[in-house]
Write a protein that binds this DNA or RNA. Structure first.
Length: 279
DNA sequence: ACGAGCGCCTGTCGGC
DNA sequence: TGCCGACAGGCGCTCG
């Protein structure tokens, strides 16, 4: 479920706190419980508990869609996948349906990982590169430039939609923000990446940063039963708007399936280029 | 190198 | 009302 803006929103709430809830920096983990064993990717549960207990939360960061808790001696890494969420609560709060891992803190609070679909994973490791090593650049990093994007598109031969969803190409985009970015750039999701010219790459670079920035400003998108407080869903231009008018030209938004994922676009603003009169 | 298909899971929604 | 299939913000794996 969460893409870069949603994970970034959760990161900021955990780090800075929100409303009456203080942030987690400096908090010490006193006990760890894993309710659904497959949630724990590594290490095995006995070592996990032995190692994590007693460590303090030094910093809270993000890489792509991964949430990174830097502890005194290790990194506690979460991936929320489709339905994961993290919340901080008082120790006496009742357990909720789908709570998968619970960390009791020395200050009397709890950090709880809740995940209806059980796809989410967490890792405890001294070497985060083992988990994050194959990720592409961060969209807001200096490494991600229009030139880098143009070269990357040239070197690959994949449909734009599939390529942008590939976390080893670029970290952080998911189904929503990919559709929104391709719309803003005026590029068809099926267009082979090597056919994007320099101007198109520049538009796409700008569009990716813009939709992610908008998503962060709106605290992410909340759809279906999974609510996390964001309202970017009210600003979707194409995502889940099949049949509704394109905000730019009024043509009905179309929906396709690309790589098993629902894909939304404007057939007029994002037309495939003409093949050019071969005969 | 790349795409298709499936598995992992639970929940919601629309159609009959 | 109940049942059933489609679909859902992700990703790792196989196979061709």
């Amino acid at each position: 479920m969460p893409e870069l803006p949603e994970v970034e929103t959760i990161r900021r709430w955990l780090r800075q706190g929100r409303a009456d809830q203080a942030g987690l920096l400096g908090a010490e983990i006193r006990e760890a419980e894993v309710v659904w064993p497959r949630t724990l990717a590594m290490p095995a549960l006995p070592e996990f508990r032995r190692r994590v207990v007693g460590q303090r939360i030094v910093e809270i960061g993000r890489r792509g869609k991964f949430l990174l808790l830097q502890l005194s001696a290790d990194w506690l890494i979460f991936h929320l996948r489709m339905s994961g969420d993290l919340r901080v609560e008082a120790q006496k709060a009742p357990r909720q349906t789908h709570d998968r891992a619970i960390f009791e803190l020395a200050d009397g609070r709890r950090l709880v990982f809740n995940d209806a679909r059980k796809f989410g994973r967490l890792w405890l490791t001294a070497e985060p590169k083992a988990v994050l090593g194959s990720l592409g650049p961060e969209p807001f990093d200096e490494r991600f430039t229009p030139e880098w994007l143009r070269d990357g598109l040239q070197q690959k031969r994949r449909q734009l939609k599939a390529l942008l969803l590939d976390q080893s190409f670029l970290a952080g985009l998911g189904n929503i923000y990919t559709d929104e970015a391709l719309f803003l750039a005026g590029l068809h999701p099926c267009l082979p990446s090597q056919q994007v010219d320099a101007a198109g790459a520049m538009r796409l670079w700008q569009a990716i940063r813009q939709v992610l920035q908008e998503g962060i400003e709106h605290h992410g998108a909340s759809i279906d039963w999974v609510y996390r407080g964001g309202d970017f869903q009210n600003y979707f231009r194409v995502y889940r708007r099949a049949g509704q008018p394109c905000p730019r030209c009024g043509a009905p938004i179309q929906r396709l399936r690309i790589g098993q994922r629902g894909t939304h676009f404007c057939p007029r603003c994002q037309a495939l280029p003409e093949r050019g009169g071969t005969w």
